[in-house]
Design a protein around this nucleic acid. Sequence first.
RNA 1: GGCGCCAUCGUCUAGCGGCCCAGGACGUCGCCCUCUCAAGGCGAAGAUCGCGGGUUCGAAUCCCGCUGGCGCUACCA
Length: 482
Amino acid sequence: MVDAPIRVRIAPSPTGDPHVGTAYIALINYLFAQQRGGQFILRIEDTDRTRFVESSEQMIFDALHWLGLHWQEGPDVGGPYGPYRQSERTGIYRQATDELLSRGTAYKCFCTPARLDEMRRAQIAAKLPPRYDRHCRSLTPQEVQQAEAAGTPYTVRMAVPLEGATTFRDELRGDITFDHNNVDDQVLMKSDGFPTYHLANVVDDHHMKISDVIRAEEWISSTPKHVLLYQAFGWQAPRFWHMPLLRNTDKSKISKRKNPVSLIYYRQAGFLPQALINFLGLMGGGMPADLEKFSLEEMAANFQFERISLGGPVFDLEKLKWLNGLYLRALSPAQFYSTIREGVFGEDYLRQIAPLVQERIETLTQFLDLADFFFRDDIMPAEEVFLPKKKTLPETLKLAGELLGVLEAADWNHPALEKALRDLATTQNWSAKEVFMLVRAIVTGKTASPPLLESMVVFGKARTLDRIRRFLDFQKKRPAKN
RNA sequence: GGCGCCAUCGUCUAGCGGCCCAGGACGUCGCCCUCUCAAGGCGAAGAUCGCGGGUUCGAAUCCCGCUGGCGCUACCA
């Protein structure tokens, strides 16, 4: 293992927009591979078909490439250890599961979701840690056969040793120990035949010869399960490096509720990839303290893993903006022009906006009077604009809060958006008209605009959500009048 | 609740036993430059190094306890 070639990987799930946390971990993995002459691999972890989003995978590829992070092996470029999409590897997991089953380090569990639910509730009520009670672990072979013959759906769980403890080394923190009492009999294979993260991850990392697992801190508590799995298979475990989690201003794990986390947002909002990647490089230390502005190449040359600081860094937009300004000013006039031309006034973008205003203007220069909100950053409606006549301010802000979740969950096209907004109106007892007007105010800053839904589709989900978030934020901080 | 991780200015961080009554950057404020605004230059405010005990001639730095924050606690990753 010591002299095994360096191979690292990033393993995002295609469940929505590419996440800034994914970019952060990708960056660290990329730097690691660069510095040690290793391979950087991209693997798509699409085993959760309930959260799967079709368009997500391509967006992940695009966003990472936009940032300049390129991989040597992956679903799009191939490689010797493919396929690199977990949904195409189910046979491998099936085989791995059978092996565990035959070794007795895993067992079939026929418990219904209802029973598990009830069990958990009882445990919580009794102030016990919610954990699987290992009911099916003691099933006799005949009982298992019977249940199977009856066609009872089952999951496969890992048989965690009843005693002892597992210690593993985190390369950034040292040894970490978990008592087996505190390790749950994790589900490895779901009843739909797809593996859970834990199984797929360990199996793939082994088969893909991953030498170092560099991932976010949230995985520390499941690492003992992974180590136990490597042992159950008789495999050598990789090294583990757990990076600190990016945080919201309130120190909680960075979330779309409180921050723009979509890489699509940063691109559309006019951030340069060099600035974002530079900023990410500032998070959690790693670079010499006297360097503030640096390129990806400079990071590869100077980043030191021993310098990483473990406190979760707050993702502070203010500093990102400052950095972005630095990069913008460093552009030559020609570069700046083409950057603006493509980034703000992109051909495709203008082409979509034009028809929305065409029938509403009398001279060409009125174009911006109507379409300004597509290009501006500082849209913030006044109370006279966003507050419906028959609603109070608190009622309105509450609805705006709901808006965030509703639109987050919606598919970004006209019919889906219309339905989402109308449904929201119904459930909240608002008129559709009032809801549409509120959204119009937040998105466009005005009471009169090009058609709202079409505009939102063109404007994009990431920026629309950001506008709502900023609106909410602004209203919350605004001193209450009266 | 249980388990685990973490803890230096509002934020990102430097510091790895004496050079620190803690340095840099963002943000904030002031001054200069200037037709304006930025940018740029200069300067200021801002951290009893979470708290309490040790160890040591000496601790932000090592140890212990506490507190706090965060994460995990799903047939999500």
